[in-house]
Design a protein around this nucleic acid. Structure first.
Lengths: 218, 218, 218, 218
DNA sequence: ACGCTCGGGACCCCCCGTTATT
DNA sequence: AATAACGGGGGGTCCCGAGCGT
């Protein structure tokens, strides 16, 4: 098992290196030589753990998805009100994009998935589904107005978050991403909430702060 | 001058071919050989008009920007109410993404700009600025509520549109992009308008239909 | 004829530029684009005057040969003693190598003649023949000993000069070429002259000084 | 270690092929494809052993230098009189130029070193130094006259040999190189030796014959 | 006559993603 | 899992000619 343990560690090192290189260069422009160098591994090791460049890219995406899903589950288990959960999930995802290279690389690969043979529909459907459930609960609870379609809202939240994060990347290298996420909810909430008092909106928006601690574990 | 005319035509053919290839494969995985083949041009011609692959990618992005800016100017000249202009701009951009290969390719390249050496901040700032002006006018007019920040709103609209379009690409190959744009405004408008009556909101959202004709010229 | 005059000037400009580029890069690594740029001429002009890269290289060699032959004739017409003529010819060739780009380029091309299809035997035979005649005269005159073969001596002088100049190029960028030519004769003369008194040798060697004027015309 | 052995063999095969191609075409006109073909190796192998064309050219030069230096050491160890050693070294170098492709290629590259980024001063200084030591010893011994400068003589011998060999290459494809080397010493010796009797000179010049065996090993 | 614009293909060097062999 | 080697294009660009001005 000691060997297996070492293999697992190597594998993760490679994924981390690959994520970094893919994030910088994109799939097509990334070179496995550079990945090997970054991960302090020979190409032989690389090909021992992954069948191909595609395979490696998929592994990065999957690892990224795993991390984000794990974050989501943690939040769900905290038993917050559903609308609050939606907001906190965006916050945590934003944080991962700021600090977790694997997530950064995975996200870039997600939008280059046609460069290799990979469908990223699954992860998106997953995330939309989670948001839709929360939205429906929030409507049932009365936090969100009854004339708001949970389906349309969930899709919008996911899309809007995606765009906010990407435009932040392009404009500021994601420096302002947390601020933009807060602005997003600041504008979205008055359009969907039942009680649009500045107080209630402000309390929810206030959940998005940069000085919160990152949840432990990956 | 006949020569110059031929050269211009060749250049445009190449840009069109390049846009198509870049859209399919992304920057790094695109091959100039394929571009040449697609554009029915030899590498010699390609080399005559563009110094490098980077140069070609930049030309595609710039051509895309040119088209979109032109669309925006046309809309501004139609003298619509500002909020309506914002919505119509999104609609027209969406249409371009559906039907104009150069715009599709340019947009993909925009998000891979770190693969080659190019800053795409400019175009984004431009677009945000236009939106901000319109938003400020709409606030002044009374269409948008006074407690909505034109700055934050414009950034959100641009980011949200970006995300909507990208997620639509990933999920449905952009088949549902016009619907998602309509949903976006359907949810945004009640949060920012002064008069949120279903009637007023509905009339604005109704501007986004697929059966409108595309404005002539590129 | 005015046009022809312009053409001739252009042609010579091109040869000068080509010589410079060939000297720096060698035949194979030289690019006609760079030649055109150096000569401030378009590729069209270049191809009007020369059929091919080979053709251009040959033109440079021939121009170089023409210059050197012209120098030789001038020296012969000065009516010096034959051994003195041999020495002065080496001196003048050395000067050309220091100051005349066409000669520098031509010489480099001479030793890369197998890279393009060109035989440089002719120029060498010419030069050896001239030297052989002078050597024979010097023997007849009694300046050179009778047991020295004019044939062998002439070949050696040409070869030795060639080597001296090339090694000087490699070692010092030809900075010390005149000194090395003087050393060459300093060592050669005592082995071939009839009267090897330091005085006579010194007088001949003294002909090689850098402060002489270059013969006018090219 | 078996692997390393194979790699070493491959590397040497490549160098040999490269030397042959460089000799025929010169650096700039040589193609790595042809090198690979000649050496019966794929481009991948070539890239594995050498980083670039420049790198390959340098390796050829260095291998050539190694061979020649080795020859020189062998001769020094034979304990001949110094002047004889100088002559025998020229003879052996001449033989290498006739029969050893790596040396032929290396020498051509030496004079095209500005085509790639390489300084060949080192090898020349080395050789001059060796010759200078021998010349000084010969002067001390009384074989060479005291008024001959070892420094100037060594430079001339190296330069003269270089020229003799290059002119022989240009004029006869090096067919007559051994004869020209003999002529060179035939003319040089009477100018530098103490005892210029035909007997002594003839015995030394007689060392240069083509029917001697080549020293074993490379 | 002289020259330039534009484009045609053919490689070239590089190096990449991959596979044997050990 | 490291060493060694495989081929196949990758982007680039070179040499050159067709066609049009002047």
């Amino acid at each position: 098992v000691a060997l297996q343990e070492r293999a697992r560690a190597t594998r993760e090192t490679i994924i981390a290196g690959a994520a970094a290189v893919f994030e910088e260069s994109g799939y097509g422009s990334a070179s496995l030589s550079l990945v090997a160098e970054r991960a302090q591994v020979t190409k032989g090791a690389l090909y021992f753990h992954f069948q191909s460049k595609e395979d490696l890219a998929k592994a990065v995406i999957e690892e990224q998805h795993r991390i984000v899903v794990q974050d989501g589950l943690t939040i769900l288990q905290e038993g917050r009100p559903p609308l609050e959960s939606m907001i906190v999930m965006c916050r945590e995802f934003g944080r991962r994009l700021l600090h977790e290279p694997v997530v950064r690389g995975g996200i870039r690969l997600t939008f280059e998935a046609t460069s290799f043979g990979y469908s990223v529909q699954g992860p998106y459907e997953d995330w939309i589904k989670v948001m839709e459930n929360l939205a429906a609960q929030a409507v049932a609870e009365g936090a969100i107005r009854k004339d708001v379609s949970p389906e349309a809202l969930s899709k919008l939240v996911v899309a809007c978050f995606t765009g906010v994060q990407m435009v932040s990347e392009v404009r500021t290298g994601r420096e302002d991403v947390m601020d933009r996420i807060r602005d997003m909810w600041q504008i979205l909430l008055p359009g969907i909430m039942h009680d649009t008092s500045a107080d209630r909106v402000g309390r929810l928006v206030g959940l998005i702060r940069m000085d919160h601690t990152v949840p432990a574990g990956t």
